Computed example of a mutant assay.
Amino acid sequence: MAASAASAIVMDLVQRWGVMKRDISSTPPNLGLFSFDAHVLGGALIGLGMAVTGSCPGTSFVQAGTGSLHGALVVLGGLLGGITFVSLTRARAKRQPQTAEDPPHPEVSGTQSKTPLDIATALGIPPFVLLLIWVPMCLAVMRIAFAKDRSQPSLPNPGLVPPAYGGLLIGLAQLVTILLTGHAIGASSGYEDVARWLEGKLVSGSPKVEASRKLLTGPVMFAAGIVCSAAIQNYLFGSGRPLSNLEYPHMSTLLALRAVAGGWAMVLGARVARGCTSGHGISGLSKFSLPSLVTTASMFGMGIATAAALKY
C-alpha cells in the first residue's frame, strides 16, 4: 500500500513537471528584435537591480520580513516596477487590438519560436544524459565558488545552516510547492498581481476584467508566506533585529533611492523575462529550459559587470 501511494505521488509529480515545462517554454516572450530578446533584456535589468541592491525579488521579501527598511524599500521599488510593466503592457495592447475571443495576455505578447526551448534539444542529447552531466557540473561549480569565497567568515550573521544546505531547503520548497499546487516557485509575479489589482481599483475599464483581478492570488500568498516565515525565523532563531540593518546601519537618502530604483529595475526586468532568480534560476533551470538559461546568464553577466563598474 505504501509503495503504491509513493508510486502515485511520483507519477503525479512527473505529470505536473511536464505541464510546467510546457507552460514555461511553449510561448516565450518576444520583443521583435532577435530570439530570446526579452530574456536578454529582462535578465540584464534583473542583474542590474541585484548588483545595486544586493537583493533579488524573492530575497527582498525575506529582508522586509525581518523588518529591514532597506528590504522594504526594495519591495516598494519592485511594486513600482510591476506597475510600470502593467502600464506598458496595457499601452501595447491598445496599439495591437485583439478580438473578444482572444483577450490580452497578462504577459508580454510573443509568437511561437522555432528555436529549441530546452537545453537537451539544443544540444541534441536525451534529457537523462543531460541530467547526468548537469548535477556533477553544478556540484563542481559550488565547490569552486566556496573554495574562492572569503566573504562567509566575515558575515555578521552566517545563518542557521551553510549556504549549500540552504539551497537544498529551497529545492525542498520547490518540491513541496509542485506537489501541493502543481506550479513551480516564482517571486516576481506577485508584484505584477498586486499592480494589476491596483490598476483595477484606480483605472476605469471593463467591469468583467476588473472583477477578475484579485489581490490574494497564488503568487501574492506565496510572497506573504515568505515575509511571515522570515519574520518568525528572525524572532525565534535570530537576534530579533532586522538582519540587513547590520549591513546598512544608517539609511541615507542616496541608499534609499538606490534601493527603490534597484527594486524597480529587478521586477520590471523579471516581468519582461517572465521570471526572476527563482522563476528562471531555480524553477526554469531545474527543467533545463533554454530561455531560463539565457535569462540567468544575462542577469549574472550584467550583475558582475555592474558590480565591477561600482567597484564593489
Results as ranks from 00 to 15, higher is better:
V135W: 08
P136N: 09
P136F: 01
M137Q: 15
C138Q: 12
C138H: 10
L139W: 14
A140E: 14
V141I: 10
M142I: 11
M142N: 12
R143Q: 15
I144G: 07
I144P: 05
F146T: 11
A147I: 11
D149E: 10
R150Q: 13
S151M: 11
Q152T: 15
P153A: 03
S154D: 15
P156W: 01
N157I: 02
P158G: 02
G159R: 03
G159V: 06
P162K: 15
P162Q: 13
P163N: 11
A164M: 11
A164G: 01
Y165M: 03
G166D: 05
G166Y: 02
G166F: 05
G166M: 03
G166C: 03
G167C: 01
G167L: 02
L168W: 07
L168D: 11
L168P: 02
I170R: 06
I170N: 01
G171N: 01
G171C: 03
G171I: 00
L172N: 09
Q174K: 04
L175S: 06
V176R: 00
T177H: 02
I178Y: 02
L179Q: 12
L180K: 11
L180R: 10
L180M: 13
T181M: 06
G182Q: 13
G182Y: 09
H183V: 04
H183D: 15
A184S: 13
A184D: 09
I185P: 07
I185D: 03
G186N: 04
G186F: 02
A187F: 05
A187E: 13
S189V: 13
G190R: 07
G190E: 09
